[in-house]
């Protein structure tokens, strides 16, 4: 099948629209996601956040590499580990924090919380707490885009845990049959909750989309430039009407399955975590490259981080001081 050829992207060359400003913008987004998530963890440990959250720390290059290729009116669906996707697609940290704290000013007026951020203004169809639950929705958005001829593409983010749910395969079959502009982005962060993916996933992951004739590629999910370059090709191709694609991104979840999963030795070693953090950190790798290539100085990057730190302080403060919804709103928006 001609359209199933593999390309394992390594260190990519920069794509035409990734000039110096675009790279700095990508750095800013990645650093922003990390700092956002660190604040989330802090809010949790200080008992200021209701419920739990699933942190994206370690996986920032995937969301940023992909979303930096999208138009603001392109669609995404996100996951329970979705803060990174939402921020990369353009969500504002203050309203994100407000949603995480269950406040009226949140993206969903406090009704969704950490796992369900949705925002039509940035094309975010919503984060989903059923791991394969959004594959149909993302495919349907691509169906609309094709039918309405608006040139949009749809990106379906999901973790490797969703490879176990059948609706993904039903959706991919439909997408390829109808040549829909949807990109399935599988973030393999190595663990399905507390179980190594090799214990749950038979055969070759890329063989699954390829069985449908879907173009499937694998990329180093810690290398934002590689993710960006691969995504750009697949998004351009989908936008040109050439159909769906599948991008497998190898990455690693630095923290626990959720913020409360702090004793992890029974399913993975501290050495393994340390190795990823010291050798494969997406932000570290990218900042080293930016400095080595003279696209930024260490001082510039530090100043960006400091700038984001103070913006996050303000965003957290906004959320903490924002009012809760009135209990009378509980029955609002059950029906449109």
């Amino acid at each position: 099948m001609a359209n199933t050829k593999t390309s394992v992207s390594k260190q990519s060359s920069s794509s035409p629209d990734s000039g110096p400003d675009a790279y700095i913008q990508m750095y800013r987004k990645m650093a922003g996601i990390r700092l956002f998530e660190e604040r989330v963890n802090d809010l949790y440990t200080r008992a200021l956040m209701p419920g739990l959250a699933h942190l994206y720390i370690g996986e920032e290059a995937v969301a940023v590499g992909i979303c930096s290729t999208l138009r603001s009116d392109d669609y995404i669906t996100s996951t329970h580990r979705g803060h990174g996707h939402c921020l990369a697609k353009g969500a504002a940290p203050d309203r994100m924090f407000a949603e995480l704290l269950g406040k009226e000013a949140g993206y969903c007026r406090g009704k969704g919380g950490s796992m369900h951020i949705a925002d039509p203004d940035t094309g975010n169809l919503g984060a989903n707490a059923i791991v394969g639950g959004s594959t149909g929705i993302a495919t349907g958005a691509a169906f609309s885009a094709k039918r309405l001829g608006n040139g949009r593409v749809s990106v379906c983010f999901f973790g490797e845990g969703a490879l176990g749910q059948g609706v993904l395969y039903e959706s991919m079959n439909l997408a390829q049959l109808w040549k829909l502009p949807v990109i399935y982005v599988c973030e393999n962060n190595t663990y399905n909750e507390y179980t190594h993916y090799s214990e749950t996933t038979a055969g070759d992951v890329l063989g699954r989309p390829r069985a449908f004739g879907i173009l499937a590629e694998r990329v180093d999910g810690q290398d934002v430039r590689a993710v960006h370059a691969a995504a750009q090709r697949l998004v351009d191709r989908a936008r040109a009407g050439e159909g769906p694609a599948f991008l497998l991104c190898d990455t690693y979840r630095y923290r626990g399955h959720h913020v409360g999963d702090v004793s992890r030795e029974y399913y993975r070693s501290k050495q393994e975590e340390q190795k990823w953090m010291s050798e494969r950190d997406p932000i570290g790798l990218f900042s080293d490259w930016l400095i080595a290539e003279h696209r930024a100085t260490a001082a510039q990057l530090q100043s960006i981080s400091a700038e984001i730190q103070s913006a996050m302080d303000a965003a957290v403060q906004f959320a903490l001081s924002a009012p809760y919804p009135d209990p009378s709103e509980v029955q609002q928006d059950v029906y449109a």
């Binding site: 639950g133 929705i137 495919t139 079959n173």
Partner: peptide
């Protein structure tokens, strides 16, 4: 499940 999910996404988007 697949075409119902697809229809939900299509309903959300026009």
């Amino acid at each position: 499940a697949g075409f119902t999910g697809l229809a939900i996404g299509a309903a959300m988007t026009g």
